[in-house]
Design a binder for these strands. Sequence first.
DNA 1: AATAGATTTATACTTATTCTAAATTGAAAT
DNA 2: ATTTCAATTTAGAATAAGTATAAATCTATT
Lengths: 131, 131
Amino acid sequence: MKTINLTTQRQAVYDVVCESVDHPTAADVMNRLVERGHSFAYGTVYNSLRYLTDKEMIRELKLGETASRYDARIDDHQHIVCEICGRVDEVMAPVPEEWMTQVAEETGYEVHEAHVVLEGVCAECRSKRKK
Amino acid sequence: MKTINLTTQRQAVYDVVCESVDHPTAADVMNRLVERGHSFAYGTVYNSLRYLTDKEMIRELKLGETASRYDARIDDHQHIVCEICGRVDEVMAPVPEEWMTQVAEETGYEVHEAHVVLEGVCAECRSKRKK
DNA sequence: AATAGATTTATACTTATTCTAAATTGAAAT
DNA sequence: ATTTCAATTTAGAATAAGTATAAATCTATT
Ligand SMILES: [Mn+2]
Ligand SMILES: [Mn+2]
Ligand SMILES: [Zn+2]
Ligand SMILES: [Zn+2]
């Protein structure tokens, strides 16, 4: 099945994710929908996020926090989280192929994917800290 | 504070984690404690796991499943999960330094840590599949 | 308009984990 | 040996994120 059925609700959820640059949680998406005058059931937002994820229009991120985050960028990339302020930024540098090969040899796995979450201190928090 | 106070409960939890090779969840640890004749409160097991994690005697792993897993190996390493059977194996090959440096340059972050979860198919599942 | 399938809604439920307040433990001081 | 007191454990309630359910509603198609 390749057909995509974008209902009003799904389109609105998709719009919010697309127009967010901060990898929002489901709760964030809910709030932003309300700000825009919508009022969908919680279940509908979760269903829509799952639907859009299944259709590969968005990606679900598990960064080690309790709640999933959602990302409108579907090209291959990783994430970095600031230990101080919690912001999540994109990491576009691809995970080295040779390392993946090395892992395949070491473990005997056929390696399909890598999910990397880096931790550190963002430029902003770093400059604040210098006081 | 560096003093470590291992109560009976904490020691028993630590023993279970140390003697497990499969990165058990809190519920797994509970079950294994019961098998050994213990019967601690749920809260105590969670408290103990957190205590041991704080003291860096074990590590808490967030692999993208709903429940955390625990690891008695505290040396720097990563993990790979089989998409078919769910087993979790160690990845000892270190994440390339040069990639981390590249990420630091790209993002402006001071990079402290990398958490990598690889996905693929383990040797066992691969050979089963060949039928 | 009638039908059927998909979707939305409201709400109940599940799972993992944390919180709370009372009871217990155990080491140190008498 | 007994008292004392902080740390710990316990049982159970509370929370958070997400899923399941069943009834109501929407959306083509006949
Ligand atoms: Mn992203
Ligand atoms: Mn490990
Ligand atoms: Zn920051
Ligand atoms: Zn497998």
